[in-house]
Amino acid sequence: MDYAFDFALVVETFPILMRGFLVTLELWLPSLAIGLAAGLVLALARLSRSRLLRGGSLVYIELFRDTPVLIQLIWFYYAFPILIGVQLSPFTAALLGLALNTSAYGAEIFRGGIQSIARGQWEGAKALGMRHADMLRRIILPQVFKLMLPAFTNRAVEVAKMSSLASVLSVHELMYQGRLLSSTYYRPFEILTTVAVVYFVLIYPATFLSMTLERRMAGKG
């Protein structure tokens, strides 16, 4: 293999990639936060006594889990203006799409967590005369948050990877800049490899954190 890797180009274009990297961060963190918060609400709906809420949330969750994210993003990109009547920027559409997807997966994490809390905890709280909402807020959810921390971190990893799909909607994030640069300079090997490395540097710490948390919890038994 006598391919000459053009390092100078990587150095030259790096600031542009970093601009994309910032947009990736702006997509990733808010969509994760909004998605997980909405996921909690959905999980409560999944576990509620009302059949309507249970059925509705189930359909919502399965729709998101059983279709490709890319289609979801494209669908919302077209659907938001038509359904809501507001013209959204590609960035906002992507952010909302990612957040909605995350809410479906987040709901399953919360549901699993809430169901895994031993019945004794509910009974203990009930025995103190707590109301249902108080039990959830004071006793159950704090345990769920802790227990599900590895799963949430895992989700953060997935959302970071998914955010790269926003490039298809021409959101100027990292992958988009990478595609643009590699066709401008016709040096796809240098640029795309650099993009991959930047993603790795962004995502690996979260994976590592998730593994460490998992191991520590397994250790506690």
Partner: peptide, 24 residues
Amino acid sequence: VEFYRNTPPIVHFFWFFYALPVVL
């Protein structure tokens, strides 16, 4: 394994379609 698990799939697609052929 860790490299693939920690980078987005779309990067892999583009890398194999655009980058690898240039090198090879």
